[in-house]
Structures are given as C-alpha cells and as structure tokens.
Design a protein around this nucleic acid. Structure first.
Lengths: 230, 230
DNA sequence: ATTAAATTTTAGACAAATCTAAAAATAAAA
DNA sequence: TTTTATTTTTAGATTTGTCTAAAATTTAAT
C-alpha cells in the first residue's frame, strides 16, 4: 500500500487550481494561475519549476503547462478531501453551504488517507458535495455527469438541480430566497425572449422569475436524477 | 467576538508542549522542551524569543520559562482541539484509541473556533478524550479531576479507569489484551509485596496480574465515577 | 516586418523555521 | 574555589515559499 505521499499545502493548492483551470481551458497559463491563487506570476513560475522537478506536470518555458497523470491523481485526492469535508460540515455540523469553503480549504491538507476513507464511509459515500460538485472516489475516479445549465433546459421538462456554477454568497442567497437548492426538482414554465429571463416552477410553490444571468449558473442534470437521493 | 487568533502550527506545538511540561515541573527548561518536541535546543531558543516577543510566556535567558495567561489560554485551545478530534476519530470513525494521536496532531491546527464548538456539540460535549484526558471547554476551562494510579488504590475498593499515563502502543496493547479500557470498573484482589504486582478483577472476567510498572500508569478516579457515563 | 504591448521568467531579497558549531553562562565536582 | 561538565544561547547557514524589479520572450498592432 502506498504510504501517504505528502505535498506541502501550497503545492496542493497549486495542483488543485491547475486541475480546475485545465478543465476549462485545456492548457493553463502563468497569469491565470496567479490570479486563481491570488499570488504573483513570479511566484507561480517558482512553484512550477518545483512541480516539474517532481514530475507532476508538463511544462515548457513560456508555453503554458498542464498536469500529467501523477499530478492529476494528486489534485483529485485534494479535491476529494475538500468535498468530503464540506459535506461533513454541512450535513453533520449544520454549517450553511455558503460558509464551509474556507474551513475545507484547511482541512483538505490533512494527509491521512485512512482518515478520508473512514470519513467517506461515515458519511455514506456521498456522490456530490453540498454545492453539487461530484466527489472523486478512493481511487481518484471522478464520475462525470452530464450537466446543462437551466437556460438550456427545454420548456416543460422537469429536471433536478445538480450544481451551482458561480458560488458567490450573493448567488447562494438569491437561490435560497427562491427555495432552490441542490436536488430541487423544477420546470421551466415560460421563457421571455426579450431578456432571456425564465419563469420557473418548483413543486408546491408559486412560480418565480430568474434572470438569464442566474439561469446560466444553475446546473441541472440532463438525464436521470442524481443517484444519491434517498 | 474575538476573531480566530492564529499561531503557526509550530508555535502551537511549542505552546502545548510547554503547557504539559510545566504541569509536571512548574518551570520548563530548554533541553526538556527540545526533547519533548524532537528538536534541537538551539531551535527551541529561537522559538522562545518569538513567543516572548508575542507575550505568550515569561522567559529570562538561562533561567527557564513558563506560559503566562495568554500563552496558557492558547495552549488550552490547542489541547481542546486535539482531544475533541481524538474523540471524533474513535467514536465516529471507528479508529482504535492507539492510532488517533498522529492524525489529531494535524487536525489540532485547524483554526476555526466555530468548527470546534460545532464539533463539540455534535459529539455531545464529551468530558474526556479516548485516553481519559479531560477536554477543556469552549472558554478553555480545564476541569481537574482527582485521579490516583492503580497502585495506590486500596484493596477491595471498586474504581473506574479514568486515564492512562503512558500512552505507548505497547502499553495500550497490553491493556486491551486484559480487557481494561476507559471506564472499566475494577478492583484489586491482592497485592504482592515482593514485586508490587497486583491481582486485578474486572467484572465477568477471570482475574489478571499487572506489574507495578503497568499499575502506576493506569489512572482511576478516587471518588465518584466520571460523569460522562450513559 | 518592425514596433509596441503583454506575458513569462530570472535575479536577488526576505521571513519563518530549522540546523550545526562555537561561545557564554550556570551548575557540579574535585 | 578552581576546574570541569552541562546547559543555554549566539552566529551563521539552509530550505521553503513568497516578493519586487528587471530582463527575456511571445503576441498583437501598425
């Protein structure tokens, strides 16, 4: 059994941020990573050299970079830890889903793999964190689910909220106000072409209107409901 | 409300170790602290200067040192976190009491006070960790309990195990083998003056013999049973 | 195809935490 | 009470992660 491979908290943060950025853009740039980590491009370059020496990423001067297999594995372990701790904080310690991120940023750097696997079991092997982001399994496999945003959902088709793209507290507050949260089943009653706003219906509630801006940030599952239900 | 005052993990480790050492010896020496932290006396001196500058301890060159009020408060918060996490690991994640120390050494440095107070509530405000050491409350108050070691227990008086002084895995293994753990009610049936060994009886079990060495490391409550029972 | 602008990297510095080796202070022994 | 031994501190170096300012490279614009 591989012992707990340890990377510093800073390295783990870099790996995680690179992972997220390359999901969107394929290749990652120094400036983009510096912005994501709230640090300086020069600092990023310093760290990239170390990560390259440790064979965690593919990197050539001035040409951008991305994780190799080893780096992706490491990033996924950190993401797994982050999301499991978030789930724990919300489901067991009664935190609001909008206040757990910072604490999870710290907890995700606790090394013990055994701890995380036990926590996973204790929580009942959840598939997604409180924001709807999927949790990688013990081997680091990330199940990808087909998500579309609410603006793309056809009129009259019921779908279940499975993620929130922009997780600002303002956004979360707005959704809370409209009784929309993870797992909520909803249906588009009307689309207004003028401003692309939507009238949305949640069961047992009066219909509400959502702006295009909001709708694009609400992700719903295209197909079947997410598994983790009952 | 005071925001989370943050000390580095290393500083917290120093504070905690000083606290424990001064419990026993009143004043703490550089060498003793270096030994406890597995580091070098020179490194301890370096850190002491910083802690003194932050007004966490009373320190004069060459004369030993101890925590002041501020330092003691900080140390107790770390100890509270350590012991609550240990309790969580054993009671919720099914870890053995002999394997939780190292993980708790990491978890104790997570800053959020809200997290710890929520965890405390989630666990039902336990009074002692899995080794029987008392858990400071949210204000850092440490309830001291009257403990004696098993060798001091009078013949025939039933007492309840409330702590283990030497928590080596060898010791814990031996106790486990003899079905002695926290909360176990036991009674001394016979004392052998030759080697000061004891014959000890646990309810529903055949009597076992414990060496003086072991007996001195098993702490029992003098008086009433510890509160945290049912 | 040059020039200008933006991006990225290097060079050199700094803070935190640690170390080794040597010096200073204190304690113990002859 | 000297001398010796032990303890503690200082001086100077090292590692990790970060920074600023300047140089190198790439990209965009005229």
């Amino acid at each position: 059994m591989a012992p707990n491979v340890r990377y510093s908290a800073s390295k783990e943060n870099h790996l995680k941020a690179i992972f997220h950025l390359q999901q969107e853009h394929g290749i990652v740039t120094t400036n983009a990573l510096a912005a994501a980590l709230q640090t300086r491009p020069a600092s990023v370059t310093d760290m990239l050299k170390k990560l390259k020496d440790q064979k965690l990423l593919i990197y050539e001067r001035y040409k951008g970079f991305k994780l190799n297999n080893e780096g992706r594995k490491a990033a996924l372990q950190v993401i797994r830890k982050h999301r499991l701790w978030e789930y724990f904080l919300v489901k067991k310690l009664q935190f609001g889903w909008d206040e757990v991120h910072e604490i999870a940023e710290e907890l995700e750097h606790i090394a013990s793999k055994k701890l995380i696997d036990r926590l996973d079991a204790f929580l009942g092997f959840p598939e997604a964190d409180p924001h709807g982001d999927p949790i990688p399994d013990s081997q680091g496999r990330l199940q990808t689910r087909r998500q579309i945003n609410l603006a793309q959902l056809p009129l009259g088709k019921v779908a279940q909220v499975s993620g929130i793209a922009s997780q600002t507290s303002e956004m979360l507050e707005l959704l809370q106000y409209n009784h929309i949260r993870l797992g909520t089943r909803l249906e588009i009653k009307k689309k207004f072409p003028f401003d692309e706003s939507l009238e949305v219906k949640v069961r047992n509630r009066p219909p509400v209107t959502l702006s295009a801006r909001v709708a694009k940030n609400v992700l719903v599952n295209d197909d079947e409901p997410i598994t983790e239900r009952r």
